[in-house]
């Protein structure tokens, strides 16, 4: 009896262990695969050619520079939209809204976070881009800005819900301390609550940016997909092509094992690296915040 019990324990423990390890294994395999398919690029295409400004794979122009700038400009625009809006909404929900309002808004924001990006792309094509074309008098409404707007919309719920949690966990005593000193509601938020929740709010921004940079479907639908170097001021209002959209659009039509195929994987590696950096920064910030919290609690 006892022996069978301990045997069962053993099996269950091992099963849980195995599933834990397999997650690591899968990530490692994906990474390995990415490297195996992407790294040959470096021997097949010259570095100078990679950093070129022309992406025209059919004629062996593999300049990924426009794609990187495309991704960056769209993401930057999205961040500029999502961060103020997201933090503003979080502050409103956590600090200002009456309780009934908070109870409506919180689930609503989370629902918004679950909106499939292809639906948003749809709205982008049908409503946002024609509107922008007329309103800003552009040759086409499919621009980096359109992508930024929609990506901003996608990132907002992430920013809101993480930032709201951070604000919520600021001890009530901080606020009361400030109020008791005659600070107004706004002074308390700006000078006490937000700085106290700084690290959580930063994490929210990082996660929002991470969400935006990895987004594919929406940007593919609304940014016009022209691989043009986006470094001029008005690039925001012309079509661009992002790294994600390039992979999604071309991967299906490329000959397995060709240079083009390898370059697409190489772009994947670059993307992976960028989101890795964003995530590492985010978790470093969170780690620091945790250490501080431990010090205060001890």
């Amino acid at each position: 009896m006892e022996k069978s019990l301990s045997f069962r324990e053993f099996i269950i423990t091992r099963l849980i262990q195995a599933s834990g390890y397999s997650a690591i294994l899968f990530v490692a395999l994906i990474f390995f695969f990415l490297l195996r398919e992407g790294l040959p690029t470096l021997s097949e295409v010259e570095t100078s050619s990679l950093l070129n400004v022309r992406w025209y794979p059919i004629e062996s122009y593999f300049g990924i520079f426009p794609l990187i700038t495309g991704s960056l400009i769209v993401t930057l625009g999205a961040a500029l939209i999502a961060v103020p809006f997201g933090i503003g909404t979080a502050v409103y929900i956590s600090e200002i809204a009456p309780r009934w309002m908070r109870e409506i808004l919180k689930p609503l924001v989370e629902l918004l976070g679950g909106l499939p990006s292809v639906v948003l792309g749809f709205l982008g094509i049908l409503i946002v881009s024609p509107f922008l074309r007329v309103f800003l008098d552009l040759p086409t409404g499919l621009t980096a800005f359109t992508g930024s707007l929609l990506l901003g919309g996608i990132a907002v719920p992430t920013v809101v819900s993480v930032a709201e949690d951070a604000l919520d966990s600021v001890p009530r005593a901080y606020r009361e301390g400030a109020w008791a000193l005659g600070a107004t509601k706004w002074q308390t938020i700006w000078r006490v609550t937000l700085p106290a929740a700084r690290s959580g709010v930063l994490t929210a921004v990082m996660l929002g940016v991470g969400r935006a940079i990895g987004e594919t479907m929406t940007v593919m639908m609304v940014t016009g997909n022209a691989p043009v170097l986006a470094v001029k001021l008005n690039s925001l209002f012309s079509p661009v092509r992002t790294m994600t959209a390039t992979i999604a659009a071309e991967m299906g039509e490329v000959a397995n094992g060709s240079t083009h195929y390898h370059v697409l994987f190489f772009i994947g590696m670059v993307l992976f690296l960028i989101s890795l950096v964003v995530n590492v920064i985010a978790s470093a910030v969170v780690f620091r915040a945790k250490k501080r919290a431990e010090r205060i609690l001890s």
Binding site: E176, G182, A183
Partner: peptide, 26 residues
């Protein structure tokens, strides 16, 4: 009113800033 009627709490809650900034905050 709160400037006229100051309050000190049970648990000291220094605001997350320097000593000087805490004192001049109000």
């Amino acid at each position: 009113l709160r400037r006229k009627v100051g309050m000190v709490f049970a648990r000291p809650v220094p605001l997350p800033m320097s000593i000087r900034e805490n004192v001049i905050y109000g």
